[in-house]
């Protein structure tokens, strides 16, 4: 693929390193900050792959919204760190899991390597996209034409999530109020 190998390997290496940190770090807050680095690296890879809108969304939503939410909750709960230790049995599981995951990666890599069957390229070559006004414009037009129904359904999903969060967050308050009433 026509991407710069230097940048890709830097970003990929950073991602792998910091995702390992995410899962191995004992402190939740450290995990969260490692995750932030992974998100940024991913945004870089997206940009390399000409997915400019996705790269922007990655930074805005993952790094800007989701991760902030995580950090916010971690600070809100403020649980002491000692209880976050892995258990002894868990390490054995981890070894097994790592082996299993390695097996999966190996299998998938084999698939990806051998999967060089001639694939029919779609209409969105870089030249076409450039001519039509760039990645963001083309993607937006797609969203509002071909994918308009899922797009609208997404709004319903978000609404449901909002209501759900509100219910979860307010439940304790309501219980407390009913207790006071008694």
């Amino acid at each position: 693929m026509n991407i710069s190998p230097g940048f890709f390997y830097v970003f990929a290496g950073t991602s792998i390193l910091f995702s390992l940190l995410v899962i191995l770090n004992r402190s939740a807050i450290a995990s969260a900050f490692s995750l932030l680095v992974v998100f940024f690296s991913f945004a870089g890879i997206y940009a390399l792959l000409d997915a400019h809108l996705v790269a922007a969304l990655q930074v805005l939503i993952y790094a800007g919204a989701i991760l902030v939410l995580f950090i916010f909750v971690i600070m809100l709960l403020n649980v002491e760190q000692a209880s976050f230790d892995y258990k002894r049995g868990r390490i054995l599981t981890g070894v097994f899991a790592a082996f299993g995951a390695f097996g999966m990666v190996f299998l998938l890599g084999r698939v990806f390597r051998s999967g060089s069957a001639p694939l029919q390229p779609g209409p969105f070559s870089p030249e076409n996209i450039q001519a039509a006004g760039g990645n963001t414009r083309v993607l937006s037009e797609l969203l509002f034409s071909e994918y308009v129904l899922p797009f609208e359904l997404t709004s319903v999903l978000l609404l449901a999530a909002i209501i759900g969060s509100v219910v979860l967050a307010k439940r304790g308050v309501i219980e407390k109020k009913s207790k006071e009433a008694k």
């Binding site: 792998i16 995702s19 899962i23 992974v38 209880s83 892995y86 258990k87 868990r90 981890g94 899991a97």
Partner: peptide, 13 residues
């Protein structure tokens, strides 16, 4: 990356 995430899912409490 996916299986690093998966391993983390398994080992973290």
């Amino acid at each position: 990356i996916f299986f690093i995430g998966f391993t983390g899912l398994l080992i973290r409490r």
